[in-house]
Every structure is written in structure tokens, then in C-alpha cells.
């Protein structure tokens, strides 16, 4: 079910049942943005459409969303990025114990299934990655770290992510990649854009 919620004079928030519905609607809207829409922001259960009020009206945008057919292949249609990871994160052993896995099994689960960038946020270039079927349920660290190094590969809730730069963070760190996921000298600067598929590969045996 799709609900359109008011978000002030310039935006509409479309609420959907689950993340797959978000991916499907976002993929369709991003491919063919309604006239006068300047930003489309997917999130866990919603897609925000920010308009330029001099070019369109909120009701016209709501109509355009209603006419949009979600893309059912949103998880399989995007570009593929391969990220080599050294699985030596500080939280790997403890998290594996918490999930009743060996560290090797945790790594196999992380590398074994393709991830999809569902949405961004938190910091420029940070992507919230999900696997189909929602096989992860990872608690955040009780005490967030004040400094997480750039390139850290982490898990929290149903998501995996790569820290684009040094920042505070409460996710569980399982490894590190040397690939810069956000680089101002690259076009586009963000590697992990919504819809992009990600394959993590183990960089070297531990």
C-alpha cells in the first residue's frame, strides 16, 4: 500500500510497505523524474520527492507518482561494484559469537550474496546496503565509537555499509576496503548510489 504524506510546502513523502517496494518505486522515479522534482530521496520505508514550486505543484507530483509503475527488477538492474575487503574488523569475532556463527561463516554470509544500495544518508557517499530476504539482524554497539576509520566495512540492523571518511559510528566493524567509496575527483563522486549492486570479496586469506 502506498500512502502520500504531507511534508510542507515543497515536498511529498511517499510511504511504502517495505524496502523492496522503496527500491522498486525509487528506480522507476529516478529513471523518469516527474517534472519539477529536484531531489528524490529513498529511505528505509519512504521516498521523499522535493519539488521546485515555481515549476510544479504538489498535487501534480502526487498524480505523477500515482501513474508511476514500480520497477520489479530494481535489485538486479543496477551497476555492479566489487569491493575487496580484508575481514579483520575489531568487532568481527565478538559479533560472530553474538550471531552464533564462526567468523568464517559470517564472512561467507557477507560475501556470498549480492547486496543492493537501498538508500543514502548519514554522510556524503554512505550507502545503506541490503541483501534480499533480510537475513541480518545486527545490534548496534552499546557505545558508539567516536572515530571509525575510512573504508571500514560494517553491519547494523539489516544493513551493511562502508564509512566514506573518518566519522563517529555505532555499527559493528567487520573489515576494511581500500576502495574510496566517496571521491570528489570522480564523477559521480559516490560509488554506492541507490540501486547499485555490491559484491564484497575477501581480499586475502586471514
Amino acid at each position: 500500500m502506498t500512502r502520500v504524506l504531507p511534508s510542507g510546502s515543497t515536498a511529498l513523502l511517499v510511504e511504502l510497505d517495505d524496502l523492496d517496494a522503496v527500491l522498486a518505486l525509487y528506480a522507476a522515479l529516478a529513471e523518469q523524474p516527474p517534472d519539477g522534482v529536484v531531489d528524490i530521496v529513498p529511505a528505509a520505508r519512504t521516498v521523499l520527492l522535493v519539488t521546485d514550486p515555481s515549476r510544479t505543484s504538489l498535487s501534480a507530483v502526487a498524480d505523477a507518482v500515482g501513474r508511476t509503475t514500480p520497477r520489479p527488477d530494481a535489485r538486479t538492474g543496477g551497476d555492479v561494484v566489487e569491493l575487496p575487503v580484508r575481514y579483520d574488523g575489531e568487532d568481527l569475532a565478538e559479533l560472530a559469537r553474538l550471531l552464533d556463527l564462526t567468523p568464517e561463516e559470517l564472512v561467507r554470509r557477507h560475501t556470498g550474496t549480492e547486496w543492493t544500495v537501498a538508500f543514502g544518508g548519514f554522510a556524503p557517499g554512505f550507502g545503506y546496503l541490503t541483501q534480499p530476504g533480510g537475513q541480518w539482524d545486527v545490534p548496534r554497539r552499546a557505545t558508539p565509537r567516536t572515530k571509525v576509520p575510512p573504508g571500514s566495512v560494517a553491519l547494523a540492523g539489516e544493513f551493511s555499509g562502508v564509512y566514506p571518511r573518518e566519522s563517529p559510528g555505532g555499527w559493528q566493524l567487520i573489515g576494511r576496503t581500500d576502495v574510496a567509496v566517496f571521491d570528489l575527483d570522480r564523477d559521480p563522486p559516490a560509488l554506492l548510489r541507490p540501486g547499485v549492486r555490491v559484491r564484497f570479496v575477501e581480499a586475502e586469506p586471514r
Binding site: 525509487y26 529516478a30 529536484v38 531531489d39 528524490i40 530521496v41 529513498p42 521523499l48 522535493v50 538508500f119 543514502g120 544518508g121 548519514f122 554522510a123 556524503p124 557517499g125 554512505f126 550507502g127 559521480p188 563522486p189 559516490a190 548510489r193 541507490p194
Partner: peptide
């Protein structure tokens, strides 16, 4: 910077 919010880049 409008148009880049989906990449985590605010306006």
C-alpha cells in the same frame, strides 16, 4: 547543491 540528496549530499 540540489539534486544530490540521494547520495547523502544535502542542498
Amino acid at each position: 547543491r540540489p539534486g544530490q540528496a540521494a547520495l547523502g549530499i544535502g542542498r
